[in-house]
Design a protein around this nucleic acid. Sequence first.
DNA 1: AATGAATGAGCTTTCATTCAT
DNA 2: CATGAATGAAAGCTCATTCAT
Lengths: 200, 200, 200, 200
Amino acid sequence: MNILSLREKKAVKKKEEILKSAVEIMAGKGYHAVTVEEVASRLLMTKGSVYYYFNDKEDLLYQSIRMLMEQTIDKIRSVLEEEITIVEKLKKAIVQHTISIISERSGFSISIRLEQIFTGRYLEELIQLREEYSEDFDTLLEKGMEEGLFISTNVKVVRNLIFGAMNGVVQWYSQEGEMDKKEFAEMIANHLLRLILKSK
Amino acid sequence: MNILSLREKKAVKKKEEILKSAVEIMAGKGYHAVTVEEVASRLLMTKGSVYYYFNDKEDLLYQSIRMLMEQTIDKIRSVLEEEITIVEKLKKAIVQHTISIISERSGFSISIRLEQIFTGRYLEELIQLREEYSEDFDTLLEKGMEEGLFISTNVKVVRNLIFGAMNGVVQWYSQEGEMDKKEFAEMIANHLLRLILKSK
Amino acid sequence: MNILSLREKKAVKKKEEILKSAVEIMAGKGYHAVTVEEVASRLLMTKGSVYYYFNDKEDLLYQSIRMLMEQTIDKIRSVLEEEITIVEKLKKAIVQHTISIISERSGFSISIRLEQIFTGRYLEELIQLREEYSEDFDTLLEKGMEEGLFISTNVKVVRNLIFGAMNGVVQWYSQEGEMDKKEFAEMIANHLLRLILKSK
Amino acid sequence: MNILSLREKKAVKKKEEILKSAVEIMAGKGYHAVTVEEVASRLLMTKGSVYYYFNDKEDLLYQSIRMLMEQTIDKIRSVLEEEITIVEKLKKAIVQHTISIISERSGFSISIRLEQIFTGRYLEELIQLREEYSEDFDTLLEKGMEEGLFISTNVKVVRNLIFGAMNGVVQWYSQEGEMDKKEFAEMIANHLLRLILKSK
DNA sequence: AATGAATGAGCTTTCATTCAT
DNA sequence: CATGAATGAAAGCTCATTCAT
């Protein structure tokens, strides 16, 4: 498996570079500021080359977002598999997500208004991915409720509130004097756990 | 003061209509989908006319956002002046903000990445306004802490988490089966209060 | 009826100028050589202006072809209404069509592979128009057969052969030493009538 | 002569495949729809390879058209060499040409506006070829006139009318319910002979 | 021989902005 | 005041062509 010729490896690498270039611009100036021209010129390429690797701009943005989402999902999944308590899992998940948001700014990919950017199959697949991610969280919340650790309530509402609060972080983190990311994320997690933890 | 000739009154009214038209489009299709052409055509005007009332597109958007922000600020301020407990004030503020978001969708104006859209003086003034709004909330939170009703913590962090959670609502409210707005907003408020209320 | 303001008249005129510009290029270099840029620059306009009058390039070409087709149809219809014999009508129709082809080169609009250029509604309407034109000819041929003037045969086949021969003229007329157009067209008609006239 | 090494033979074969691929696309979607990319991909090649065999796109198209023209000329020449009457030769030539058009669609190569596509030497040579083909027809017509079988008239005019009618067939044949090609072509020939045959 | 990769010119289209009337 | 008209800058995309390997 994964037998790629040198050429293919190079091509994969190039694609990734392009995706990263696009992500950087998105993170800095927003999706609508992304032009194929700029994505290319950051890599000292020309527009034409980008079109060699991607069908069109929507495809490029789609794959960018997809990459970010998958990275975040992977991290959260590995947290879920650790042998720790539900509460710790939830906390770690929030910390992880928050770190993703403030470091790679991938958080926006979860909170984005996908419908305003994508169409057709692209849209469907990203929505699907977002839902998978949500379900991972929901499962965790449900378990906590069953075990009597969390308050009994509407899972989706709580999950969405937590998501909203986390994703919002991207907008104000930098103002907070660049506190250590890990530390910052843990503080956030501690706060957000109050939304769901049963108070003694 | 406030003595406007008939002509001036008409002009003011026209401006407001244009602003509303712009806001509608923003709410529906998002920020970047706003074109001067569409703003005008919704009012059976032509593009040229819009430029009679506004210097340029940035000006138009600036004033739109400003109007939304001011409306929301006004509502929150009148809540703050009511003769009710701090906790009730906070709850009412959250309810009010949430309703604004899901009905007029003005919430986006608070959560928007202003820096990605505005420049120069426009940007400064909107940031200023956003801060005023934040301070109103902060004052409330501080009072609650002083009175021992709220947990003692970093006010800005909690305020930003609450803002994030509230603003995120715009993205998932409609899926919730169109529950009554007031009722929905109160549910949200009850959840979010847990972030700050001391548990007995 | 037909009450147009001065402005509207000007606009109509402008549209016509643009259509003519497009037709000229088509006639000279073929459809695919038509660029919006060139259509505009021939009128000392900019591309942008053309898009003020037409939705897109397909719309521009559609209206160009349509205009040509309608002009040709009109001429043939007035021939059909004249009080002359069937044979004379057919001859005049052929003459007229031939003259159209070699002078305004509108002939190509009939013979063009519409499917290779147009799509959707545009395509449908032009095909419809082409069929109307064909029917006018067919009716004439049928009458002639009924009256025993023409040989009895498949109308569509004969009509299509005549069309093909006439439309082909555009490709070789200029080589013929610029004979007088009318005279030339009559010669063509005399030849083509042999296809259908009963020989004594 | 004609001593080609295995390598050379392979190269010739490859070239022919590429030419056929180009012709197929032309026949199906028209001239301007031919892209080097598609020509190559139909043969599971890459664009680069095509450029190994042809100088540039014009060269590729030139050789494609040339091949079609030569094939058609060959067929007509063998008809001319048969030991049959002039009238039968003309009829057979028309049948043959018509069949070529509707089966291989090579007809377009004769009727195409070469000047809109080719330049320089390419253009000259194709025009030359087209003229050779025309002369074969013209010789036949002249002989028929000399023998008193055909009406006395301008040979070129008649030849061009016949060409136009035949070439036009490509546009409407398919609508005719897919009549047998041979039968169809003979019907066409019988009609077109009326253009030139002396009526008794 | 063949190909993957890159390029650049050219085209269509959108849209904020201006301005004479 | 309002509008029709025009403009030009930017963006997306296609494709013939080149070239190192």
